[in-house]
Each structure stands twice: as structure tokens, then as C-alpha cells.
Design a binder for these strands. Structure first.
Lengths: 175, 175
DNA sequence: CGCGGCTATATCTATTTTTATATAGTTCTC
DNA sequence: GAGAACTATATAAAAATAGATATAGCCGCG
């Protein structure tokens, strides 16, 4: 329910094409919001019908024709009201989901599973860190995404140590 | 793509009905994975067709008839292979998305927006903390969800202080 | 005795998201 | 000059998710 607002937000920077928007999301908003072209183009068409963006068709310059979108005043209003709206807690987390069911593995396999999860977080972190840094609050959001991944790794590593210390430690401790 | 695995995981504890599964998710897996009945019942039917759960229809006892599901050996195998599979990084975060576009608000309104976000995280946290504590790795997952929310609040509060200290501090600092 | 709340299953619709595919010109590289 | 990569838009099909509604018996409360 947020993609249109993300697009409006990016268009507040400057007018862009659908293609530009995809790249901006990928480069500046990794871990904040990502979408495929197949979602972006229809979303832009809907925003246009809602009068929140304005379309200008540019003649083909270096390739096919381009559709350039810019935010309208109505679009800015919509974006502001979204910023003030409450966030619904996100209720799905693939990492926590994996860990939550590790009890069903025999103790010997848990360590390997935790390490595999840690590795994939590590790769993710490397990708995020190597991306070009945006500015303003977008930079703050990226920092927070990185911090969260690092905290996730620390957590996984603590679980590895606990399950190594005593096979049933995790199940036993009730702290 | 994980709901069937969550259901298999819960059914490894004990056989349950669709209704029980919804409650178990709500009570034990809040912030890990949640789903509506409209998703759970069809998912159970698919798992059954795939031979990963076995259905036993119980006669009506205290209400309508109940469909009790139990995991099969094939279901356990499927769950184990899912536990070993890599997690794809989640690319959508409503909180980070809100914050990422705070730049478009005038400085005077940013503080209020940040505080509103903080409040909704606070409510969320209270709900999570008051829930009954599960055991084993499920407890670890719940702890991590709580830690993450607390870290989110600390982050928001830091942003509040920064933007109070100097209106353009956030945009200016390049640390 | 009626009312609300709980247990329980199920469907319908709509929206969101993902994955795959098609087209086509341009620019860069070997 | 061939092929790869980039710019650019778009649709089809499938899957996942959300939200609402329907049914119906049971239980406890006042």
C-alpha cells in the first residue's frame, strides 16, 4: 500500500521516468522499498489517473520514447498525509521465521543452519555498504538498515555460541 | 512464499485445526509471521494435496465440525530443506520508508512526524511484551523482535534530538 | 430467554507483489 | 562488425495478502 507514496517521494526530488524511478529505488532505497518495473509502470498510470502526477511524453532521444513524470500539488498533499499516518507493524520476517523453527532440527544441525543465515546476512550487508550514500533522511534510513543487519548478525552469533556451549541451552534457559 | 512452512512448523508441535494455527501465529509468532484465515485454509488444502499434511475430520464437538491436520514425513522433510535455504533480504519497511521521505516536510513538522512514529512503535512494543512467552527458538525470535523495536525507538528519538538541536542538522552532517 | 462472544470453516473480492516475457534502439567493448 | 549491456516501456500470468462476509452451534451473563 506504499509503493505509490514511494514514487511520489522520489518524484519530489525531480521529474523522472519509470526507468529512473526503478534505479533510484535500487540505489537509494535498498532495504527501504523495492519494486519491479511491472509494478512501477501500472502504479504510475494509476497515480496519473488520480491526478497526483503529471505525464510529459518526451520524443525518443537515445532510445525509445520516454515518459517523464512530475508530482502535482495533489501528489504532494497525498504524500504529506501518508507521512503523518500510523505505520502498521510489519508482520513477516523471513529471518525470524527460520530461527523460530530451529527447534525441530537435531542439535547437530542447528549450528550450521545459524551460520548459513549469518552468511546470507553478511552478503546483504556488504551490498548495502558498497552502495552510494544518499543524503538527508534517506541516509539515516540506510544507516538504520545497516545497523539492523549488524544487530541481526550479532544475535545469530550469540545463538551459535549458546547452542555450542550446551546443546539444550537454548531450550533450557528461561531467563 | 513461507506461509506453508510456518504452518508445517507449527504442526510439528502438535496436530491442530486451521483455527488453532491462526491463534498460534497470533500469540506466538507476532512479528514473525501472521496470516488471515482466508490464507490459512487454502494453504492447508494445498499442503494436503502435496501430501505434506494429513487431514482428519473430527465430528462436531462443542461447535461445528473440525478439520485436524498433522504433519507427514514428507512435510517434515520439506520443512527441513526450507530451514537450510538462504533467506532473501526483505526489501520493504514501512517505518524506514516514512523516515526516508521526511526531508519533504518543513522542519517544523518533522519532529511531530517522528514522535508519531515513535508512539506507534511504542504501542506495538507493549502488545508484543504483554503476549505470553513461547519457548525455545521461538522465544529467541520474540526477543529479537522486541530488541529491534526498541532499537527503532532509540533511533527515532536520536533523530528527534538531532533535528531539534539544529533544524538542518540531519541534512548537513556527513559524518 | 436473548444477547454477545467464542469456536470453527469457508468463500469472495480486491489489491499487492513476483516472475517472466516482448520489443527495440543505442552505446560500449572486443 | 558482432555481441553485450544499457535505456525504456509494457503486458500476461501467477501467487500472496488483506478485508469482508456468511454460517452455525455452543457457552456464559444478566
Amino acid at each position: 500500500m506504499s509503493l505509490p507514496h514511494i514514487l511520489l517521494g522520489l518524484l519530489c526530488d525531480q521529474p523522472r521516468t519509470g526507468y529512473d524511478l526503478e534505479r533510484a529505488m535500487r540505489e537509494e532505497l535498498d532495504h527501504v522499498w523495492r519494486a519491479e518495473f511491472s509494478q512501477i509502470y501500472p502504479a504510475l498510470a494509476r497515480l496519473r489517473r488520480a491526478g497526483q502526477v503529471h505525464l510529459k511524453v518526451l520524443g525518443p532521444r537515445g532510445g525509445p520514447r520516454r515518459n517523464l513524470y512530475r508530482v502535482t500539488a495533489a501528489g504532494r498533499r497525498e504524500l504529506r498525509s501518508w507521512l503523518a499516518a500510523p505505520v502498521q507493524p510489519r508482520s513477516k520476517d523471513p529471518l525470524l521465521a527460520r530461527v523460530a523453527f530451529l527447534d525441530i532440527l537435531p542439535q547437530g544441525e542447528r549450528r550450521a543452519a545459524l551460520l548459513a543465515l549469518d552468511r546470507s546476512l553478511g552478503e546483504d550487508l556488504r551490498r548495502l555498504r558498497s552502495a552510494p550514500a544518499p543524503a538527508g533522511f534517506r541516509l539515516e534510513a540506510r544507516r538504520r538498515a545497516i545497523d539492523r543487519l549488524e544487530a541481526g548478525r550479532r544475535w545469530l552469533q550469540a545463538l551459535v555460541h549458546e547452542s555450542a556451549a550446551s546443546p539444550t541451552a537454548v531450550a533450557a534457559k528461561k531467563k
